[in-house]
Design a protein around this nucleic acid. Structure first.
Length: 467
RNA sequence: UGCCGCAUAGCUCAGCGGUAGAGCAGCUGACUGUUAAUCAGCGGGUCCCUAGUUCGAAUCUAGGUGCGGCAGCCA
């Protein structure tokens, strides 16, 4: 067998009378007096192929194995379907079952399963409607992201996954070490520390899984002008929420000769174009999401694509929140970070579409963000989306050597570790900006899925690394 | 990590002190160009675990484990 070059989705374009073969997994089967009906799926499209098997064509033994979950090839002819739910169907003239699936044990049923249960059978859930659609859309979105940047002359770069600079400050990190072994004790498996001197560790110093490729991306932007990363990112925070993962995929563009305004423009264009492209490419999947997952999906996504994002400064947002008359659980006040309820009020009640907030107090943002002339705020931006909150976080970077050095010292960060980062400001420094976008958060937004664990094949969260 | 909730058949759930139930799925049969087909019958349980209260615990109490929701951390 060669690899598949045509898929079930291609069969739907064949003219009646065409002879062909259909490969896939059986979703359901219905029997009638003179024919058997099989719903066949290969993941290439949301729509199943209905295969019609005339009575008497197959032996009783083969027929018995044509059950939900079985993998099979049908040979036959494309014919117009008298049924209402499909334009064409495959009239079978032969079948080969590759792998049967015992119907008494096969866990995926054609009727209602909860997301929690499907998560437990993550190795099989891709065969169902929901996760077939999720992973097709994930693929289409990844492709749209590359196209978006490639069309605009951005260079795709890969920043290190293992980093020895613990200086990124974006959260708790996973340590990478070869000094820890295991041993079997009377209390079970236990860790054993082979050596204690970091100098003897693999990299000669403590090293970690990256929490962001931003600092490295900046170095390449200051040479290639516009770059982006799209890769795995790790956070060791003990986060137990529907929108956090310990391992997730992040998109990080970084642009030289670019201000915060350019950064906002890119973020807005990015979200609009990726959403529009994916919707156009996967219409059947979106119909499903809109019908079964999130009934306001079409409405909100079309709105996002067709109207300008609201742009507000942090200070303006705080004033609006204070004037809102809402009774929030947490008080609103200039200088404190906005709570989920505040963001939700802004995006869902006040504005009704994504909001870009800028110019946050420097105390609640990272050291590398460019300071404003007021001495109090920095050129930060967060893109907040209704339903899921923060989807993008970015900033114009501090390009002035003296200001950056002063800020690093002020925060008590180890200035020696930033020697190469400071070199960028020493030689040919330039205003530059960029942002980080959580790929899975974007997918939650465009599919309507409610839990981030359901837009990635296998989620890594505290206490959970199955599959 | 904090607060709250849930855990009963393969799945979704009801039962909430008196000895185990429904729908769906599975199996068998009937019927039918079917569309989450329909109808009839059959099989299916460590009621999450441990300890306690009680004549008696799926049901009440305590601890544990797992899962979920909200919040925090953030993308």
């Amino acid at each position: 067998m060669d690899y598949r070059r045509t898929y079930l989705r291609d069969l739907f374009n064949l003219a009646p009378g065409s002879k062909t073969s259909a490969y896939g997994w059986i979703k359901t089967r219905r029997d009638s007096k003179t024919v058997h009906f099989v719903q066949l799926s290969d993941g290439s499209t949301f729509q199943d192929l209905q295969v019609v098997i005339p009575e008497g064509l197959l032996s009783e033994a083969v027929l018995k194995t044509l059950t939900t979950g079985a993998s099979v090839r049908f040979d036959g002819e494309i014919v117009q379907s008298p049924g209402e739910n499909q334009p064409i169907e495959l009239l079978a003239s032969g079948a080969e079952v590759y792998g049967p699936a015992d119907p008494a044990e096969y866990p995926l049923q054609k009727k209602g399963a909860t997301m929690e249960f499907l998560r437990e059978i993550g190795h099989l859930r891709g065969r169902g409607n929901t996760f077939g659609a999720v992973f097709r859309v994930r693929n289409a979105a990844a492709d749209a992201i590359h196209q978006f940047f490639q069309k605009r002359g951005f260079n795709y770069i890969n920043t290190p996954i293992i980093t020895a600079s613990d200086a990124e400050g974006a959260g708790a990190m996973f340590q990478v070490t070869t000094l820890v072994g295991h041993e079997e004790t009377k209390d079970g498996l236990r860790y054993k520390l082979d050596k204690t001197d970091p100098a003897e560790d693999f990299f000669g110093k403590p090293s970690y899984l990256t929490v962001s490729g931003q600092l490295e991306a900046e170095t390449l932007a200051l040479g290639l002008t516009n770059v982006y990363t799209f890769g795995p990112t790790f956070r060791a925070e003990n986060s137990n929420s529907a929108r956090h993962l310990a391992e997730f995929w992040m998109v990080e563009p970084e642009m030289a000769f670019c201000s915060l305004e350019g950064n906002m423009n890119l973020a807005e264009e990015f979200l609009k174009e990726v959403i529009a492209t994916v919707m156009e490419r996967c219409p059947k999947d979106f119909e499903f999401f809109n019908q079964r997952i999130e009934p306001t999906l079409f409405e909100t996504l079309n709105h996002v694509v067709n109207s300008p994002f609201e742009r507000l400064t942090y200070t303006e947002a705080v004033k609006m929140l204070e004037a809102s008359g809402e009774s929030f659980e947490f008080p609103v006040g200039w200088g404190t970070d906005l709570q989920s309820e505040h963001e939700r009020w802004l995006t869902e009640k006040k504005v009704g579409r994504p909001v870009i907030l800028t110019d946050y107090p420097k105390e609640i943002k990272a050291f590398y963000m460019r300071q404003n002339e007021d001495g109090k705020t920095v050129r930060a931006m967060d893109v907040l989306a209704p339903r899921i909150g923060e989807i993008i976080g970015g900033s114009q970077r501090e390009e002035r050597l003296d200001v950056l050095e002063a800020r690093i010292k002020e925060l008590g960060l180890p200035i020696e570790a930033y020697w190469w980062y400071l070199d960028l400001r020493r030689y040919g420094s330039v205003p530059h900006a960029g942002f980080g976008l959580g790929f899975e958060r974007l997918l939650m937004y465009i599919t309507g899925m409610k839990n981030i664990r359901d837009v990635i094949p296998y989620h890594r969260t505290p206490g959970s690394a199955e599959f």
